[in-house]
Computed example of a mutant assay.
Amino acid sequence: MKHSHTLPIIGITMGDPVGIGPEILVKALSDPKLYALCKPVIIGDSYIIKQALKFLNFNHHINIIDDPRQGNYLFNTLDLMDISNINMDCSDLSGPTIETGIAMQDYIIKGIDLALANRISGLVTCPITKTALKLANSQFHGHTELLAHRTKAKDYAMMLSGNKLKVVLVTIHIPLSQVSAHLTIEGIIKKIRLTHTSLKERFNIKTPKIAVAGLNPHSGEDSMFGREEEDIIAPAVRLAKEEGMKAFGPLPPDTIFYQAVNGWYDAVVCMYHDQGLIPFKLIHFKDGVNTTLGLPIIRTSVDHGTAYDIAWQGIADPSSLTEAIKMAAFQAKNKKPGINGY
């Protein structure tokens, strides 16, 4: 085991108190193996975490701290920065309130600021919803937008990562009917660059091989099924190659993921949300991790939502959060400061 003083401090936001965040957080930190990889500190609410411990019949001690450097970081002790003061039984609520919405946004802001100040080495976020952000009167629709705004990141991307498949999305939460209109050569090359840099600097892959998916069936089949490949995607891939990147494509979406899973490529750049997430979740439904590329801080997250329908029932699976914590620690180990904005 590494000496504790060499381990990265990883901040973990509690997410929406009404969702499964508190439960999976307590469950994940009940794994002693995590304490051999990092020093986890909860950014959340002590009253809610106490509820989760009692509900799950866990006997962990809570160590409330004002600064991550004050943590004990010992198994069976939860080091916690007490950001909110929610004195209600969240198990009685079916959805977020104004109070819980404001609180979960405050956790995120605190976590970002700690990471920017280098007081934590990485940030892991438990799930939130757009509804909760709206109740909090937030101008943001989700984690990514808030992270990008507060860190002043101009170019960023969502990567879904597992040990078999990594996918990066060019467009994210827009209607399928609008995807083609939102695709540009510059937009695609930016995502390829972010993928290339992150695979090198965060995942320690010296020469990343990046597959770029086509948009249409059979990747357009010589423009018979659409011209996006010839007019937009192929020029972006050519630019990536000219810049020295090992980019391949546009490749037919019906075979590209099979090839990536079998080791042909290190990541797949996808044109729209479900193109990447359907194959990814088929393989990594329980252990997938969402990580944001292009930020000056390390950020990983669970690959699922708040799951209000099963919250506070004791049945939520912490696997994705466990993997997100491990990935944040791994990226912190590999991070090379001052390179390409990181």
Rank of each mutant, 00 (worst) to 15 (best):
K326T: 06
T207K: 15
D79V: 00
L239A: 12
F285D: 04
K333T: 15
P68N: 08
T306V: 10
W264K: 14
S320R: 09
R238M: 15
A332S: 10
N163T: 13
P17A: 08
R193D: 07
T292L: 07
G187R: 12
D309I: 04
N290P: 06
I325P: 02
V289C: 07
V269P: 07
Y73P: 03
P235M: 12
L293A: 06
L282D: 08
Q139W: 03
I339H: 10
L7A: 03
I325R: 00
P279V: 05
V170R: 01
A332W: 01
G276T: 02
I278L: 14
T13F: 08
G244A: 14
L199V: 08
G187S: 14
N76K: 13
L123V: 09
M158T: 09
A329W: 01
K335A: 09
K191E: 13
A267K: 07
Y342W: 14
T100V: 06
T125S: 12
T144K: 04
Q275K: 08
Q51K: 09
A132I: 05
L215T: 05
G314N: 10
E243K: 09
G44M: 00
S46P: 06
L146F: 11
T322P: 06
T306I: 06
K54G: 15
D222F: 11
N340L: 13
K191D: 13
A117K: 15
E23W: 07
V168T: 09
M159Q: 06
K2F: 08
Y47E: 15
C270Q: 05
P337D: 12
L25G: 01
Y258R: 13
I83R: 05
Q51S: 12
W312N: 06
D92G: 11
F58C: 13
Y35D: 09
F280I: 04
I192S: 03
S198V: 08
L293N: 04
I42T: 06
Q259T: 07
A115D: 02
S198Y: 10
I83D: 00
G249E: 07
G338E: 10
A329I: 00
N137L: 11
D106F: 02
I128T: 05
H3Q: 15
V41L: 02
S121K: 09
I65K: 03
K164W: 09
Y73F: 14
V167S: 00
F203N: 06
N59W: 05
T77Q: 12
